[in-house]
């Protein structure tokens, strides 16, 4: 038996839309783009999903929102921001119309429910990625 690590050291440009989203995150601000039909996409869509037109109107949304659906991750992977059992949830932030996938830190699976309110917990140091939000937590304490 031997360890075998398949590794791709990708380094990529992010483009203007994702770049602005990540820059705002680093400043603890969550932003999305408004589609031509008025729908606010968070994370931002670069192009209107219906017409393909470039989207340029930015909308700041809240740091908290509602869990639409979720599933439990009983054993975290090494690169997950949470190193304890946690939930993956689709979270619709206040002011957004589309949900965003992120981790929710709760004591146990029993503390999760669709419709619950969660708030972003920021990482101590911003990373140029979605993990600048380390996770979400229930808005009014655990449970």
């Amino acid at each position: 038996m031997a360890p075998l690590r398949l590794f791709y050291p990708y380094d990529r440009t992010v483009g203007s839309t994702v770049g602005r989203f990540l820059t705002s995150l680093a400043n603890k601000k969550i932003e999305g783009t408004r589609g031509l039909d008025g729908i606010v996409h968070v994370p931002p869509a670069e192009f209107d999903p219906a017409t393909g037109a470039p989207l340029t109107e930015w909308v700041v949304v809240g740091n908290a929102g509602e869990v639409l659906t979720w599933s439990w991750q009983p054993e975290p992977f090494a690169d997950n921001t949470l190193q304890q059992p946690f939930a993956w949830a689709l979270i619709r932030l206040d002011g957004a119309d589309t949900p965003m996938l992120h981790a929710v830190r709760v004591g146990s699976e029993k503390d999760m429910a669709s419709g619950m309110r969660v708030r972003a917990v920021w990482a101590d140091e911003p990373t140029p990625s979605i993990t600048t939000i380390m996770c979400f937590e229930p808005e009014h304490g655990h449970g």
Binding site: Y8, Y10, G19, P128, S129
Partner: peptide
């Protein structure tokens, strides 16, 4: 501004 990221 974040222009590029490493995503290993």
């Amino acid at each position: 501004d974040i222009l590029r990221i490493r995503t290993p």
